Simulated assay, not measured.
Amino acid sequence: MQTVLYARVSVADQTIAHQRKQAEAAGFKIDVVVSDEGVSGVSTVLAERPQGRRLFDMLRAGDVLLCRWVDRLGRNYQDVTSVIREFMDRGVIVKTVINGMTFDGSTTDPVQMAVRDALIGFMAATAQAQAEATREAQKAGIAYAKERDDAYLGRKPSYSRSQFSDVVARLEMGEAVQAIAKATSLTRQTIYRIRDNRAEAEAALARWAA
């Protein structure tokens, strides 16, 4: 049996090393890292990514597939739910670093199965909704910057796009502000600003092309 960390980064300020460090800090012992860099989770399904395809070949019953959150597997509801179910059918256990979620196909209890499947659907839907909201906020931020004669950018964000995505994911899962600040190395005030006005926080990144 092995624990395989799947890491995906789509922009320059995200790193594979950060995702591994985050997983190890949460207590996971990783045997293999499989990663895709510069690949969108929206437009490219897992099976069509260069390294994503490897997972389907290498994972066996009893193995653990670990990812930072389900959005690393993808940001398409249909793809993410079908991928997780396929791996569970193979006997692979799927775990997330954020909130320590575990999806195991071995249970036969109908209530546990219903709860598990509902969580999978919720998390996959949240990942897609987050991606769509981010895309719209980016458009709004870019349009706003272009409309200003003086090309006013405002204060440069104190967070990177990777940190922003991490904060949003943790907020969606109900983590406390103090815990998020500690995990992301951001101030609580920054977390509050992202939480209370996510669209503007994303627009600021877009204005600075971050």
Rank of each mutant, 00 (worst) to 15 (best):
Q19W: 01
V167M: 07
D196P: 01
W208E: 03
A199E: 14
G41W: 04
P157W: 08
Q138S: 11
D79I: 02
I142T: 14
Q19N: 07
R20V: 08
A23Q: 08
V94Y: 13
L119G: 05
V70T: 15
A181P: 00
M123A: 10
E147C: 02
S82K: 11
Y159L: 10
A47M: 11
V111Y: 08
N76R: 15
V167G: 02
F87I: 03
G174M: 12
F28A: 08
A131V: 08
N99W: 00
V33Q: 04
G62V: 05
E132S: 10
Q163L: 08
I180Y: 00
V39F: 08
I16H: 01
P110S: 05
I98C: 04
I93K: 13
V80M: 03
C67N: 04
A204S: 12
D150P: 01
I93A: 04
K95N: 03
T3N: 07
I93W: 00
R188K: 14
S185I: 00
A124W: 05
V168D: 06
A17G: 09
L186G: 08
W208R: 08
A125N: 12
D71T: 05
V9Q: 10
A145S: 09
L186T: 07
M88T: 05
Y159C: 09
L153R: 14
I98T: 06
A127N: 04
I194R: 12
Q112S: 10
Q22H: 14
R49K: 14
T3H: 04
M58C: 13
Y144R: 15
E24H: 03
T134F: 13
D149C: 07
Q128S: 12
A47R: 14
M173K: 13
D166V: 04
L171I: 05
M173G: 07
R72F: 05
E147Y: 00
E48W: 03
S165M: 12
P157M: 05
E132R: 13
A151P: 00
R155Y: 09
L66D: 06
L153D: 00
T126W: 05
D31S: 12
K29D: 08
Y152N: 12
V4R: 06
D89P: 01
P110I: 11
L153H: 08
E132G: 01
L205E: 02
R135D: 13
S43W: 01
R188Q: 14
D149L: 15
L119N: 14
A181R: 01
